Amino acid sequence: MIINNLKLIREKKKISQSELAALLESSRQTINGIEKNKYNPSLQLALKIAYYLNTPLEDIFQWQ
């Protein structure tokens, strides 16, 4: 199971779900699903999230 700190990191950087979704060329619903652990992002999307949040991938997503 993958757990994530996306919501915590996103809020700390003062970025809304909609703003992050626009940067990622994704939907706000996708970001919401990832944050609620209802959806696991593809590797490509996970890497883009890490890039746009300027945060190491392993700080956002962790195996448990």
Results as ranks from 00 to 15, higher is better:
63 W>H: 02
45 L>M: 13
43 L>P: 10
4 N>H: 03
4 N>W: 05
53 L>Q: 00
43 L>R: 12
45 L>G: 00
3 I>V: 14
54 N>L: 06
61 F>Q: 00
49 I>E: 00
36 K>A: 13
61 F>A: 01
40 N>R: 14
34 I>G: 02
36 K>E: 15
18 S>K: 13
27 S>L: 04
45 L>Y: 06
10 R>Q: 01
45 L>K: 00
12 K>V: 08
9 I>M: 07
58 E>H: 13
40 N>V: 15
28 R>P: 15
27 S>Q: 05
37 N>M: 07
27 S>P: 12
18 S>H: 10
5 N>C: 12
33 G>F: 13
2 I>P: 05
35 E>Y: 05
23 L>E: 07
59 D>V: 08
35 E>F: 03
13 K>S: 09
7 K>H: 07
22 A>C: 14
43 L>M: 14
19 E>S: 11
64 Q>C: 11
43 L>H: 10
59 D>W: 07
48 K>T: 05
1 M>E: 03
2 I>Q: 07
18 S>E: 14
46 A>C: 11
21 A>M: 03
25 E>A: 12
60 I>L: 12
27 S>I: 07
18 S>V: 12
12 K>I: 10
37 N>C: 12
39 Y>H: 11
6 L>G: 03
34 I>D: 01
15 I>D: 00
34 I>W: 03
63 W>N: 02
42 S>D: 09
17 Q>L: 12
60 I>M: 06
21 A>D: 01
45 L>A: 03
50 A>P: 00
12 K>L: 13
22 A>V: 12
4 N>I: 11
58 E>K: 12
20 L>H: 00
17 Q>H: 03
53 L>G: 02
37 N>L: 07
60 I>F: 09
54 N>R: 10
13 K>R: 11
4 N>E: 02
12 K>H: 10
50 A>I: 04
4 N>P: 02
34 I>N: 02
41 P>F: 04
14 K>A: 09
39 Y>E: 10
30 T>C: 15
19 E>V: 09
46 A>P: 03
52 Y>T: 11
26 S>F: 07
59 D>I: 06
60 I>E: 01
36 K>W: 07
1 M>Q: 05
62 Q>T: 09
25 E>T: 10
25 E>V: 09
12 K>N: 12
30 T>P: 02
38 K>V: 13
23 L>W: 13
59 D>A: 10
11 E>K: 11
40 N>P: 12
12 K>D: 09
32 N>R: 14
29 Q>I: 09
